[in-house]
Amino acid sequence: MSLRAGRIRCTPALHPKPGQYLVASSPNRANPLPVTLFAAGEAGDELLIAPSLPEPWTVGTLLNIRGALGNGFRLPVTARRVALACFEDTPERLMSLATLALEQGAAVALYTPVIPAGLPAEVEVLPLEQAYEAAQWADYLALEFALPRLGAIRATLRLKVYEPVGCTAQALILVPMPCAHNGECGVCSVSTRAGWKFACVDGPVFDFNTLEAG
């Protein structure tokens, strides 16, 4: 099933901060699972949604929405060189963080395989293969990836075993969160140095240096 970007009109109280998420479902019982939504930005009272909308949802579909949920990115107010690295198919889930960084006067570099539509001109785009430079240049690094790729990402960043990233680094972990902490179902479990955590409530943004392969 292909997933699309889109816009959702909802009360501003539901608007998630960068890295936080919403869960949405349609009244159609043919879709028994709720859908996790990440915002790419805001346009007036509408929320720009990163590609995650299922095909059956069309213009005018009324959704039941819950949020904002989870712990998002914590961009230090002192950060002046912000690097974003997307190891997935689209960096749009990081775009609201890019906007926030620009608003506080930081220089922003985006390491990505794809250039998203509407990317602010102030953002420097770099190939993902150069992401290892980010840890030297940035004073804050935000990454986005699915947990099974952790080893490959550490290799891309040219980190030795147990070597931490040299700056503040946070990671948005992309993992199914079907119960959104309603059931503590454990499907979104993430292994960290502090033990197992649930991405739905403890994340989905984690300190990159605490993540373990699990």
Binding site: V23, S25, N31, P32, L33, P34, N64, R66, P178, C179, A180, N182, G183
Partner: peptide, 8 residues
């Protein structure tokens, strides 16, 4: 069961 997750 999962209705509780969908309607949260």
């Amino acid at each position: 069961d999962s209705l509780l997750w969908r309607n949260g």
